[in-house]
Design a protein around this nucleic acid. Structure first.
Lengths: 223, 223
DNA sequence: GTCTATACCCTGATAGAC
DNA sequence: GTCTATCAGGGTATAGAC
């Protein structure tokens, strides 16, 4: 008895999981179809080609950025700088909860497909930019706790690089140690930047949408 | 007239180039053989399986770490902290010289193969560790220019994460801007750590092997 | 929208002469 | 150590009934 309502979503989520685990090229459409409990007819009804599927996967990851990592658990944290580390911690949980079998969605796909699949690369580049946009807002929100002349966008680039690299390193070494060392480095870095605290100025708070009901553990598949 | 002396090396170098460009799974042994000007008989004489080849590629990258990135151009720089940024800059040149078609050797292979190819993952993990070992030595060499209680190994982890992540990001965005922002972040970070300069103490110098003759531009294939 | 059956190619790998 | 010829299997994708 085939589920007939959400086949497309099942395919996308199944593919996302497999692509992040084993890579795009190493994952056959047959495997995707089997795990998603569908057949060839359905698959190619929704996705004319395998590349169309990975594009949909990237879009799916993009949607998940806003609804998951950027808001879910993090909405509860009011301090903008702490929200930065909320994002960092969501990467950490992603690694630990899956026992290092899943890489960072953006970084993993980017590493494999940046050169050979231009359309994928473009969309991933756009998502990296959105990640930085979001981070920049948080750093802006930190207001006078960071130096006024600080290039917040460059700092966001730096944070993204550190987190993505930490994820790759942690996965290869199967250890959270390099990730934690990286996170500690970022903390020290932001701490040093804020080393001229304006007499512990009250943390900036902007009106924020009410936190959505959230699961106790944010995992990236549930983004 | 077949070259009969260095077929094995040609195969390894050709494969390394292709794996870093397009990925391991996306690169067929046929393509490798053609580009290396060899045939199936030779290939399987040296490498019983495709995975044996990628293991050899990883070992090759490992050798190149010492002979290339870690020593070539950098041996000329005496200041240990500047040598750290010499390594960072070798990543930058690697990206720019190849117009973002090649990723970081360690990070690219790790991202694709960490979960599906345990042996590859193990060797890459060992190389990451060696990278950090090397970096740690440089940071030790910096002596009293860095705080005595600073965890130099953790700092090395942080630097590696930042550089690897910056490479992925730069490749996806086809821009050096995120890389440069990351490098600038690292500079600021090390600068802040050394913000208590012991009245500009004379830079530590340790006896160092004479710099080998070096090409004007260090590219990773020539590691 | 989903099913079955299948085309067709390219993949990694082998055999055996030279 | 290198060559040519070839295999078996899995890869993506298609056709057409329901």
């Amino acid at each position: 008895m085939p589920r007939r309502t959400n086949t497309r979503e099942r395919l996308i989520e199944t593919a996302a999981d497999l692509f992040l685990r084993q890579g795009y090229a190493h994952t056959g459409v047959n495997e995707i179809m089997q795990r998603a409990q569908t057949t060839s007819g359905s698959f190619y009804h929704f996705f004319p080609t395998k590349e169309d599927l990975v594009l949909a996967v990237v879009d799916h990851i993009g949607e998940s950025l806003d609804t998951g990592v950027f808001s879910a658990d993090l909405a509860a944290v009011t301090d903008p700088v702490e929200r930065v580390f909320g994002v960092v911690d969501s990467y950490r949980r992603h690694l630990a909860d899956n026992d290092f079998t899943l890489g960072s969605p953006l970084g993993t796909l980017a590493a494999e497909l940046s050169d050979s699949h231009p359309q994928v690369r473009e969309r991933l580049a756009a998502l990296f930019t959105r990640w930085i946009d979001h981070m920049e807002v948080l750093l802006e929100d930190a207001g006078n706790r960071l130096p006024g002349d600080l290039d917040r966008r460059a700092l966001a680039d730096f944070i993204l690089s550190a987190v993505e690299g930490a994820a790759v390193q942690a996965r290869a070494r199967r250890s959270l140690a390099p990730f934690d060392a990286t996170a500690a480095g970022l903390r020290r870095h932001l701490g040093a930047l804020a080393s001229t605290p304006k007499a512990a100025a009250a943390p900036e708070t902007r009106p924020r949408p009410a936190p959505a009901s959230r699961s106790s553990r944010a995992d990236w598949r549930a983004w």
